[in-house]
């Protein structure tokens, strides 16, 4: 098999396995899986910025929340329905990422991390400040009339799973196409050596801005879908925790691998789920995982696997 054939076979097999899982798993786990798939879309977006382009952001919660509120606010205040609201969320995430990028990408490294952190914090505080419009700390419930997509009630398990799966599959395949495209190669070139890439004729600012905007589209879509599928929009999704989570998923699964974000989200979700049966110390699990990963496995699971065995893994 050529590398291309191996890559497509692997990714389509993973998608097929996830799809079939809904028929085999008990409802509790199927709902979990739907949640994981939406979070994986968020993490895939984070991975495009961090894993492929080398932009370590601490502010992706802002883009996730932009998607969630970009979907939720028009539903609440303007009576929009599911599809236009979801698209509004997607666009809001990408647009906000673009605007933040215009400013933040004038910095790099540690400064970039702090600038994105500060923008996200300002966004979170703004949600609280404008509480008459946003519902503030308490958030709001997404009207059930709006949670109907092509005639399917998204509050039902099956419709929710199928919707989450569709978005996840589209996100995964788009990511695969992107990173195997010439533009994907340029993103990696920026991560590896920005100055060299400039002297090959690429404008680093433009490339990074584009990558960040695409990343924001993923985050926005995930935020919108999360609010739509689980019926609730709240400011807690804009806190720093939601910037750390996708980073954790990506680091665990393997930064700069297409399947890494999903694998990381899946493992981390169940790690917390299982340990919370024995202890309520879930913050400790998250913290220890972060420290352990940077210390002992900075490439993550699939990154290590690629280094040792499957060199063709994208």
């Amino acid at each position: 098999m050529t590398d291309g054939a191996k890559i497509w076979t692997l990714h389509l097999l993973v998608l097929a396995a996830v799809f079939v899982a809904q028929f085999l798993l008990p409802p509790y786990h199927a709902t979990n899986l739907a949640r994981i798939m939406v979070l994986a879309v968020f993490a895939m977006g984070y991975n495009i910025a961090f894993g492929y382009t080398g932009l370590l952001s601490l502010g992706h919660a802002l883009f996730f929340a932009a998607g969630m509120y970009g979907m939720g606010l028009p539903v609440w205040h303007l009576g929009w329905l599911s599809l236009p609201a979801l698209i509004a969320g997607l666009v809001a995430g990408g647009a906000l990422a673009g605007v933040v990028g215009l400013l933040a990408l004038r910095t790099a490294g540690v400064s970039f991390m702090i600038v994105t952190l500060m923008f996200a914090q300002a966004g979170y505080l703004t949600l609280l400040y404008l509480n008459t419009w946003t519902g503030g700390d308490e958030g709001f419930v997404v009207l059930s009339e709006a949670r109907v997509l092509f005639g399917f009630d998204l509050a039902t398990d099956t419709a929710r799973f199928i919707t989450a799966f569709t978005l996840f599959a589209a996100g995964l395949l788009a990511c695969l196409l992107l990173v195997r495209s010439p533009f994907g190669r340029v993103m990696v070139a920026m991560r590896e050596n920005e100055e060299r890439s400039r002297m090959l004729g690429y404008d680093p600012f433009r490339i990074k801005l584009l990558a960040l905007a695409v990343s924001g589209l993923y985050a926005g879509l995930a935020g919108a879908a999360y609010g739509m599928l689980f019926g609730y929009v709240g400011a807690s999704f804009a806190t720093i925790q939601y910037s750390i989570l996708p980073m954790l998923y990506v680091l665990l699964g393997g930064a700069g691998t297409v399947l890494g974000p999903f694998l990381g989200a899946l493992l981390m979700f169940y790690l917390i789920d299982i340990t919370s049966n024995y202890t309520d110390a879930y913050l400790f699990v998250v913290g220890a995982a972060l420290v352990g990963l940077v210390l002992f496995a900075p490439k993550g699971i699939l990154g290590t696997l690629r280094e040792r065995v499957w060199r063709w893994l994208p």
Binding site: V110, M113, A281, F284, V286, G287, A288, V291, V294
Partner: peptide, 19 residues
């Protein structure tokens, strides 16, 4: 390494909070 230390101290933050 600047970026790795930030990630690690975020981890430490959670661990100390939990403790």
């Amino acid at each position: 390494d600047p970026e790795a230390t930030i990630v690690a101290t975020i981890g430490l933050l959670y661990m100390l909070q939990q403790a």
